[in-house]
Design a protein around this nucleic acid. Structure first.
Length: 438
RNA sequence: GUGGGUGUAGCUCAGCUGGUUAGAGCACCGGAUUGUGGUUCCGGGGGUCGGGGGUUCGAACCCCCUCAUCCACCCCA
């Protein structure tokens, strides 16, 4: 029988889990240092909670759960796996009016998308989200940039860029190019988003294909004319855009200033009016983090979504957040050799010599554990010699031998596998020796 | 949804223009060392060559179908 994983899913064997946990521990620690509190939500939601939030393309990628009974045959469904962590958060905010604002929460959890897998892309993957809800202050946006910057820095990333733009700038830009409704605006953004890949000529071609006029496209390019630095870019954009765009520019300026004051390295943050993020619900700043090598797309993305909670509730709650893509971060870290060798969970192995000594081995293991030593009791049926191999293969430093002599004398033989030295001690002294050698 | 690449031992791969019993390294098991790992030496187990069909005297190799996987596009973390 041939057995396969479901497409786009993976098992995480202990070696993978230990490495992943190191990464998650860093991220969680940074999140909590910024005052974000944990939240969890169901892995599936009522389908109407999820639909209409992600745009046409995103909608197709929602994993739907078939209804039981009659629905099974008709293909009807009333629930679906969560597509991200932002929409479930909006639902939580709408349902819990007692939450004190601003509400800062983080959530590190699996999400599902019915995408076709490729490098750094899976159907089941982890996102690490932080969001600030209940405030329109640019400080909240700046906090998101700072927490993103800090997390990536502490993970060991040196060469990354956080690109920053504003939905209002994009809207005015699309309008300059002749986009009059949200549909043609989206169409414009999709074409613009390809700038990195296909260049200006490629975008021109695509825009023409999408029905934009050549002279209108020229107007948009004029607005996008590269400037010397971010300040100049913001000044220039303000001079070129309408009222809505100017609002975006001045908000962005406040966000950027605050982020820099919060310690974000200006070399890692860049205002980029060509950054187009397609998610329907963004209303203000949008941003993403990218590394140039290896190419896995963006490793984090986020933005402000002031209208999303209002979709679920009469009470409108503004919010801004960022999502780190754990799989992509790990993919990059693996390729760049940034993941340190994970330490084994246990540090000592207690041997089981023969049936007569087994009770002494069990007592020894128990004593070591009680003293705080992470201990594996050899529970295989391999020969005595293999117990040494086992300890070595697992990467344990300590081997605790309880043979006939030791059992009789009421001691254990503590062997340091790193140095090869060994000595007879009581179980209590052995535990103390292991603890003090850490 | 579209387009390419790749499927040979647990893993990474070799296998010449189709030609005897399909190989290597690592891993695993055993022995040298019947209370001692990691190093060394010797030996061993393990493969429906992804699956099905076809061409041929003969197929891991050629053709068709299928499944899986990777990469690119769309979109995205």
């Amino acid at each position: 029988m041939s057995v396969h994983l479901a497409k786009g899913t993976r098992d995480f064997l202990p070696a993978d889990m230990l490495a992943r946990r190191q990464v998650v521990d860093v991220v969680r620690d940074v999140f909590e240092r910024f005052g974000f509190e944990p939240l969890d939500t169901p892995v599936f939601e009522r389908i109407e909670t999820l639909t209409g939030k992600y745009g046409e393309e995103g909608e197709k990628l929602i994993f739907k759960i078939l209804r039981r009974g009659k629905g099974g045959e008709t293909g009807a469904c009333d629930q679906a796996l969560r597509y991200d962590l932002t929409v479930p958060l909006a639902r939580v905010l709408a349902m819990n009016a007692q939450l004190r604002m601003p509400f800062k929460r983080y959530q590190i959890a699996k999400v599902w998308r019915a995408d076709r897998p490729q490098k750094g892309r899976f159907r089941e993957f982890f996102q690490c989200d932080v969001d600030v809800a209940g405030t329109t202050s640019p400080l909240a946006d700046a906090e998101c940039l700072a927490v993103l910057y800090t997390a990536l820095s502490e993970l060991g990333f040196a060469e990354f860029t956080i690109r920053l733009n504003d939905r209002r700038i994009l809207t005015d830009l699309a309008a300059a190019a002749g986009a009059e409704d949200s549909k043609s605006e989206t169409s414009f953004l999709i074409a613009l988003d390809k700038l990195d890949k296909v260049g200006r000529a490629g975008v021109d071609k695509e825009l023409i294909g999408r029905g934009f006029e050549a002279d209108a496209i020229e107007k948009a390019w004029k607005v996008l004319a590269p400037q010397e630095n971010d300040d100049a870019t913001l000044d220039y954009l303000a001079s070129q855009l309408g009222e809505r765009g100017q609002e975006g520019v001045s908000f962005l300026r406040q966000v950027r200033d605050a982020a820099l004051a919060l310690g974000v390295d200006s070399a890692r943050l860049t205002v980029d009016p060509t950054l187009a993020r397609g998610l329907d619900y963004y209303t203000g700043p949008v941003f993403e983090a990218v590394v140039q090598e290896p190419n896995v797309g963006s490793i984090a993305g986020g933005g402000r979504y002031d209208g999303l909670v209002g979709v679920f509730s009469k009470r409108d709650i503004p919010a801004v957040g960022v999502s780190l893509g754990l799989e992509r971060i790990i993919t990059v870290m693996k390729e760049l050799g940034m993941l340190p060798e994970p330490a084994p969970v246990a540090e000592a192995l207690v041997t089981v010599f023969a049936a007569e000594q087994t009770p002494a081995s069990l007592k020894t293991a128990s004593a070591l554990r009680a003293a705080g030593v992470r201990t594996e009791l050899y529970s295989g049926d391999g020969r005595f010699k293999n117990q040494f191999k086992h300890a070595n293969a697992r990467g344990y430093r300590w081997l605790v031998v309880v043979g006939p002599d030791e059992a009789e004398q009421g001691v254990v033989m503590l062997k340091d596998l790193a140095s090869g030295t060994q000595e007879k001690l009581t179980a209590t002294d052995a535990a103390a020796a292991i603890v003090s050698a850490r």
